[in-house]
Amino acid sequence: MQIQAIRQPSRRRFIQGLMSIIALSALPFQLLARSTKAFQATKLETVKAELFGDLPIVDSSDISLDIPDIAENGAVVPVSVSTTIEGAEAIHVVIEQNPNPLSASFKLTEFSVADISMRVKMGKSSMVTAYIKTPTTIYKTSREVKVTIGGCGG
């Protein structure tokens, strides 16, 4: 007799499941209302001041920032951030050259896995930075993403 192994959900099923979760999870965005000033800011320095105050900001190799080097479509650029940093309480994604540099903020609870994925809109090439907030320090890592006209492939 053959024993059927328990199958991991396929990527397709997972994505389909994810869509329904997103539909149910609109509520938490209300909680971010207090970050309004940071989201409305047009200068990188204002965003950092609003979000981090005087906390020190240091580079970290414990953050994974997965984003294309060249965007296939600037209107929907997939970005994923995850980290193993202890005590992470928020993930912020900042796109320097966007009119409003702060793209997204995720508040983490003690039960959250610090692993997020989303799409961002990019008008032009820019540094993209993921910040991980802990009670005492802000950790960051950056990647350059090019938004370019196409054509001329060999």
Partner: peptide
């Protein structure tokens, strides 16, 4: 834009065509 696709010093930002 096309010149940057050809001459960016980081090859990962090049597309491999000519000017």
């Amino acid at each position: 834009s096309v010149a940057d696709n050809l001459f960016n010093i980081d090859p990962y930002y090049q597309q491999g065509g000519d000017m």
